[in-house]
Deep mutational scan, measured.
Amino acid sequence: MSRVPSPPPPAEMSSGPVAESWCYTQIKVVKFSYMWTINNFSFCREEMGEVIKSSTFSSGANDKLKWCLRVNPKGLDEESKDYLSLYLLLVSCPKSEVRAKFKFSILNAKGEETKAMESQRAYRFVQGKDWGFKKFIRRDFLLDEANGLLPDDKLTLFCEVSVVQDSVNISGQNTMNMVKVPECRLADELGGLWENSRFTDCCLCVAGQEFQAHKAILAARSPVFSAMFEHEMEESKKNRVEINDVEPEVFKEMMCFIYTGKAPNLDKMADDLLAAADKYALERLKVMCEDALCSNLSVENAAEILILADLHSADQLKTQAVDFINYHASDVLETSGWKSMVVSHPHLVAEAYRSLASAQCPFLGPPRKRLKQS
Rank of each mutant, 00 (worst) to 15 (best):
I106E: 01
A227M: 05
K31E: 03
G192P: 09
A122C: 05
L297Y: 00
I170Q: 02
C68A: 09
V299L: 05
K81F: 15
M117L: 13
V246Y: 08
I305D: 14
F158K: 07
M176Q: 04
A314W: 13
P362T: 13
T319M: 13
I137Q: 12
F199H: 13
I38S: 01
S58V: 06
A109R: 08
P9Y: 02
A277E: 01
S58T: 06
S2K: 02
L364Y: 15
D144R: 03
L90K: 12
I325N: 00
C159F: 06
E300D: 09
K237Q: 07
N174Q: 03
S92K: 10
A303W: 07
T335M: 05
A314T: 06
V29T: 15
H214Q: 09
L333S: 06
A350W: 07
L204K: 00
V71W: 12
R99D: 14
H214V: 10
P94K: 09
D291M: 06
Y87P: 00
C289G: 06
K268F: 10
P362R: 15
F125N: 00
D267C: 02
Q316P: 08
L157P: 01
D153K: 11
F102I: 01
S15D: 11
F199T: 15
S344F: 08
I106D: 00
V4A: 00
S55C: 04
A314I: 05
S119Y: 00
E183F: 02
S374V: 10
V332L: 10
M1Q: 00
R99C: 12
K318E: 10
F133S: 11
S298K: 11
M269G: 06
H231D: 14
E290G: 05
K154Y: 12
C294A: 12
L69R: 00
S355A: 08
E118R: 10
S2L: 05
Q360G: 03
G49C: 04
D82V: 12
F363L: 14
L89E: 02
T260Q: 14
K95W: 14
V161G: 05
L293M: 02
A146S: 05
L348S: 03
R198G: 12
S340I: 06
P73K: 09
R198T: 14
S355Y: 08
A276P: 01
A309Y: 00
A109I: 01
L69N: 15
R354E: 12
V126Q: 14
R370S: 07
N265V: 13
A303D: 00
C203W: 02
E232V: 13
G261N: 03
R198V: 15
R138S: 07
Y24D: 12
R139I: 08
V206L: 14
A281T: 03
E160L: 05
E79M: 05
P17G: 13
P5W: 14
N39A: 06
